[in-house]
């Protein structure tokens, strides 16, 4: 899929079969290290540039984490999911319900929510091992719908259609009180995101990560290499669910509210859009996609609040027709300065 810069830059020269050089070539991260560092500097710096937009930044960090979790499943393992909101929602509800019932310490709540989502991910992963893309779509969609149905039915606990109010959190680590402006929230979410990226980064560079890409590329051959494809898919799906659950929990803890919307089909579709906007398979696609998505949403919603959905739809259609790969590469090239748009070679 689209990994800008991967493999493209080192194609020349006779390379000596020296272990050090090989290891270096092999461990080349999906993005150049400088780009990665730049992303994090921008992420932290954004707060100081627009501190009054911390709530928006917080939302972006959460959605970025959510989209990255989907990337593990889609970009690396090649599973198309239409129900990733299931894990986001599960995490959100677990974190929210814990807080409402008096367990308001953020980090244990976060962890519990992640583990709950991971458990659901683990159990449902066995459902997606067999069958076609269509079967998987249906199952992922179905699992999210079942959870939505459950959340709706057990409204004594979840607040049902009214939503879960009164999620009040203790200070993070007992030190940082949540404020109305989202300052603490942003740094809390950003820290969790950072840790998750570190973990994901390690995992995708590992033999396990290579195995996932092998399974996506050719399941038959992967099995013939001695890779237990089912076990790998279960593992990555569980990990992905865990991270999606963390994102949901962050959402619940920092917005102090959970509604059925966290499990909605729209959420699954939006996260898919974010990920493909930014590009799959290089880990930062979800983050970049989340930024683009949220910025677009904020801009368009200012103009036509009700019809935002129309523009998402249009974006999806155009994205696919133009070609996702080209689009996300262009996007990367366009971000710094807007040039080379309309004109260009008549091809």
């Amino acid at each position: 899929m689209s990994a800008p810069s991967r493999a493209a830059d080192q194609s020349s020269g006779a390379i000596p079969a020296d272990g050090g050089v090989l290891a270096h070539t092999l461990s080349r991260p999906p993005l150049p290290l400088a780009a990665e560092i730049a992303i994090w500097i921008v992420a932290v710096g954004a707060f100081f540039v627009v501190p009054d937009r911390a709530l928006l930044l917080n939302e972006i960090a959460i959605l970025g984490l959510f989209a990255m979790s989907l990337d593990l499943v889609l970009g690396y393992a090649g599973i198309v999911s239409l129900g990733h909101a299931a894990f986001f929602g599960a995490g959100a509800y677990v974190a929210g319900m814990l807080a409402v019932n008096g367990y308001a310490t953020p980090l244990p709540g976060l962890l519990a929510a992640g583990l709950a989502a991971a458990l659901i991910g683990f159990l449902s992963s066995f459902l997606i091992l067999r069958g076609s893309d269509l079967t998987r779509l249906m199952i992922t969609l179905g699992v999210a719908l079942i959870l939505l149905e459950i959340a709706n039915r057990f409204d004594d606990w979840t607040g049902g259609a009214d939503g879960l109010y009164g999620v009040a959190m203790d200070p993070v680590l007992g030190l940082f009180e949540f404020d109305l402006y989202g300052h603490t929230a942003y740094f809390y979410s950003l820290s969790v995101l950072f840790l998750c990226v570190l973990v994901a980064r390690l995992v995708i560079a590992s033999p396990f990560g290579l195995s996932l890409r092998a399974i996506r590329g050719n399941r038959l051959r992967a099995a013939h290499l001695g890779i237990g494809t089912s076990r790998h898919l279960v593992a990555v799906y569980t990990l992905s669910a865990f991270m999606a659950g963390l994102a949901g929990a962050l959402n619940a803890q920092t917005t102090q509210f959970v509604s059925l919307e966290v499990l909605d089909f729209h959420r699954s579709a939006d996260v898919l859009l974010m990920l493909v906007l930014g590009g799959t398979g290089y880990l930062y696609g979800g983050l970049i996609g989340a930024v683009v998505f949220k910025v677009l949403q904020t801009l368009i919603s200012d103009l036509t609040p009700q019809y935002w959905q129309f523009w998402i739809g249009l974006l999806l259609v155009v994205l696919v027709l133009v070609g996702r790969d080209r689009m996300s590469e262009r996007l990367g090239a366009l971000l710094p300065g807007r040039r080379r748009g309309v004109e260009g070679d008549p091809a």
Binding site: M1, A7, L22, A23, H24, T25, L26, S27, L202, V203, A205, S206, P207, F208, G209, L210, S211, R213, A214, R216, G217, N218, R221, A222, L225, G226, I227, G228, R231, H232, A235, G281
Partner: peptide
Amino acid sequence: LFPDMTPLETVVLAHAAAHGRAGTFWQPAS
């Protein structure tokens, strides 16, 4: 073969997997 991988990644994985290390997730393949 695995179209999106490089020959180096492919061969390293083939060796690692045959030696029961395909599930190693805690350290880079390098």
